[in-house]
Computed example of a mutant assay.
Amino acid sequence: MQRMSFFEERARLLQMSTETDQLKYEKASDHLSAEAGGRYEECTLALVFLRSLREGLQFILSSNDAAADKFDDVVLCWNDEEDSTVSALFGQLKYKTSAKRTTISRSSLMGNKKDFSLRTYRDSYVKIRDSLDGGSYALVLSTNIDLDDDAQKRFENNEGQD
């Protein structure tokens, strides 16, 4: 039997759900949350939950969802009332409290270290993208620290330059 895509599975759950249903999903096994980072994640989940309620969405919210690979900290799926399509937001949260690390460097973004390596997140996307067929989605990286000047330049518009 062929495995359902992420969106097929969540669409089925959204159609079947009642107010008391619980989403059963595989938890990511490598999740080790520091106290401050865990609290940041809880507050973000609470914010997403309350905003989804305020918007009147029919939604499923999960955390540390293995189906999202590295984007597992916040996974929000909702039905679009107009056309019944399922949309999703996949979020990876990074909360840092170290006095030594106050910015993200370009080398951190372009390197192979886990925390802020864009390559790590690109590889994660490649790993899960086939299961994302059939729905619209956004992948989000969120942190409480800034990019340094050199890293910010990496994201500037370079139109007209070779």
Rank of each mutant, 00 (worst) to 15 (best):
R101N: 07
S108T: 05
I60T: 09
F90L: 06
G111R: 02
N64H: 07
I60F: 08
N64L: 06
Q92R: 09
K114D: 14
K127P: 14
F116H: 00
T120G: 10
K94M: 03
R101A: 07
L118V: 02
D69V: 03
V86L: 05
E82D: 14
T85I: 09
L89G: 13
I128Y: 02
D73F: 06
S117C: 00
T103Y: 10
R106Y: 08
E82F: 10
I128A: 07
S63L: 09
A88H: 04
S124N: 01
T97A: 08
Y125R: 04
D130Q: 14
A66L: 01
D73K: 02
F116Q: 06
T85K: 09
S124K: 08
D123G: 11
D69R: 07
A68I: 03
N79K: 11
G91T: 02
D73Y: 00
C77T: 14
D115Q: 10
F90E: 01
D123E: 10
T85A: 10
N64P: 07
N112D: 15
K100D: 14
F90C: 05
K113S: 15
S124L: 01
G111M: 02
F71V: 03
R129A: 13
S117T: 01
K70F: 03
V75F: 02
D80A: 08
L89W: 07
Y121R: 03
V86M: 00
S84E: 12
L76A: 07
L93T: 05
R129N: 15
I128G: 05
T97G: 10
Y125N: 05
K114A: 13
F71K: 03
D123I: 03
L89M: 13
A99H: 12
A66V: 00
K94R: 05
V126S: 14
K70L: 04
A88R: 04
K127A: 15
T102V: 15
L76T: 00
K94F: 04
K113N: 15
A88C: 06
S107G: 11
K127V: 09
L109M: 03
L61F: 01
S63N: 12
T102E: 12
D80H: 07
R106H: 09
G91I: 00
Y95L: 06
L89E: 12
S107L: 13
V86C: 06
I60W: 04
Y125V: 00
L118M: 09
F71I: 02
Y95H: 13
V126A: 15
T102N: 11
V75Y: 01
D69F: 04
V126Y: 11
D83R: 08
R106G: 13
